[in-house]
Amino acid sequence: MPVLLLLMALGVFGYFLWRSRTTTLTRNCRWRLDRGADEWYCAYCGGRARGGVDKSPTCCVQTSNSGP
């Protein structure tokens, strides 16, 4: 039983490590899909990124730390 708990803890740690390295989104990123223009826009900073429904942004395009 302790071995199983250790494996689960390592798995959770590995998942969070993987997620932190594959995205640069900040907690302020609020991406919304504009279907008419076929692009994503950030409701927080106004950034825009091209892509379709299945290509959501993984990088923050905010240039400054100040919001709108």
Rank of each mutant, 00 (worst) to 15 (best):
M1D: 04
M1G: 07
P2W: 11
V3E: 14
V3D: 10
V3Y: 13
L4R: 09
L4W: 10
L4S: 09
L6H: 04
L6V: 06
M8K: 01
M8F: 05
A9V: 08
A9G: 04
A9C: 07
L10V: 10
G11D: 01
G11I: 00
V12R: 03
V12K: 03
F13G: 04
Y15A: 10
Y15N: 06
F16K: 07
L17W: 14
W18F: 15
W18Y: 15
W18L: 14
R19G: 04
R21S: 12
T22C: 05
T22F: 06
T22R: 11
T23L: 01
T23P: 00
T23A: 04
T24F: 12
L25T: 06
T26N: 05
R27F: 10
N28R: 08
R32A: 08
R32F: 08
L33F: 15
D34C: 06
R35H: 05
R35P: 00
G36K: 05
A37R: 10
A37Q: 09
W40A: 02
W40H: 00
W40C: 00
Y41K: 04
Y41P: 00
Y41D: 00
C42F: 01
C42M: 00
A43L: 06
A43Q: 04
A43D: 07
Y44E: 10
C45V: 03
C45Y: 05
C45L: 06
C45T: 03
C45W: 01
G46K: 04
G46R: 03
G47F: 05
A49K: 01
R50M: 11
R50V: 13
R50H: 08
G51S: 08
V53A: 14
V53H: 12
D54A: 14
D54M: 13
D54I: 13
K55S: 15
K55R: 14
K55M: 11
K55D: 15
K55P: 06
S56W: 14
S56Y: 15
T58S: 15
C59Y: 12
C59Q: 15
V61L: 14
Q62W: 13
Q62G: 12
T63F: 08
S64Q: 05
S64K: 04
N65V: 06
S66H: 07
S66C: 09
G67M: 03
G67I: 05
G67K: 02
